[in-house]
């Protein structure tokens, strides 16, 4: 029984970590009024860069930093296109996804002699046990003895909440996403705030990608991210564009996946085909949304072009 709970919890953590990070990234961008469909691409570039740099430097931390830089650079393209050049935000996000998918696989082929994936990342993140807390039953072995990236993800939930709701910076950022013209009148630079927010989203999503290639897994290939960026967008909306909402949504999804997978080990496949069991997380998410969560209100100015002085 204890081991079952441990498995469930561990799988939940495994699955939610990248989702939390990418969705938090999306949160900053969208709260400032910039849609970020490009989370998938930002995760991809982060996963690729951190894997390659970890392999070459032997340090996952340097890899992670490099991944963040790469994520910021790619997000910069999104920011320049949408904020400075007023490109349609969804179009730009889609382009970011295409760009990352093409570029990373192309570079893997170029760097590793035509290979479809990077070599194994030997120096990956290993579990950190937190003293004292690690001795708590179930929780100690899972939540308090896990990858540093998971701790980063959890800490970032609190930090994001604090920054967005308790600092002037956060207030300005949200104001820009709700009423950009009013904010501008009040002396807030819409352009500057949106640039910062989009770059933050690139950094966070890249850490999510790094989790996939240097913590949960240990290589990068074309299928490393495989749609998680889109699930992260779903988690962001499910979580109603709020940090703790995102945490809850990602954990809910991770737990549903854990149930469907652990269910197989319990032998549920005798009664339900595994294809049907695999649908479980997706069905549960829809049911939860339809039954309990309901209406979601996006930031008011999201997706709208903003031109200084025009109304």
């Amino acid at each position: 029984m204890l081991s079952t709970m441990t498995s469930l919890l561990e799988t939940t953590i495994l699955y939610s970590t990248p989702l939390i990070l990418a969705a938090l990234g999306g949160l900053f961008s969208e709260r400032s009024g910039v849609i970020n469909i490009g989370l998938e691409g930002l995760m991809t570039i982060g996963a690729f860069t951190s894997a390659v740099v970890s392999i070459n430097t032997g340090s996952p931390w340097i890899g992670l930093l490099a991944g963040i830089v790469a994520g910021i650079l790619l997000a910069l393209i999104h920011a320049i296109a949408t904020v400075t050049f007023n490109a349609d935000q969804t179009v730009s996000g889609v382009a970011i996804n295409f760009l990352a998918a093409g570029l990373t696989v192309y570079l893997v082929k170029a760097l590793y002699d035509g290979a479809g994936q990077t070599p194994v990342v030997d120096s990956k993140f290993t579990e950190w046990a937190i003293p004292v807390l690690k001795d708590i039953p179930v929780l100690g072995d899972t939540l308090f003895n896990t990858s540093p990236i998971t701790y980063i993800a959890l800490i970032l939930v609190f930090v994001s909440y604090f920054v967005l709701y308790r600092t002037p910076f956060g207030m300005r950022l949200r104001a820009v996403g709700e009423h950009p013209h009013a904010a501008e009148t009040a002396g807030v630079s819409v352009v500057k705030m949106r640039y910062i927010a989009v770059l933050i989203s690139g950094a966070f999503a890249a850490v999510g990608g790094a989790a996939l290639s240097t913590s949960i897994g240990s290589e990068f290939s074309a299928t490393t991210v495989a749609g998680q960026g889109f699930i992260a967008i779903a988690a962001l909306i499910f979580g109603k564009w709020k940090p703790f909402g995102v945490l809850g949504a990602a954990a809910f999804f991770g737990f549903s996946v854990a149930l469907s997978l652990t269910g197989q080990v319990w032998g549920l496949t005798k009664y339900v085909p595994s294809e049907i069991l695999t649908m479980l997380p997706y069905l549960l998410t829809i049911l939860a949304l339809a039954g309990f969560v309901g209406r979601a209100n996006a930031p008011a100015a999201i997706g709208k072009l903003y031109e200084k002085g025009s109304r």
Binding site: I77, A87, S92, A95, F98, G102, L103
Partner: peptide, 10 residues
């Protein structure tokens, strides 16, 4: 091709 296409879109 993906790189070229993404750049053209942008």
């Amino acid at each position: 091709i993906r790189i070229v296409f993404a750049t053209i879109i942008l």
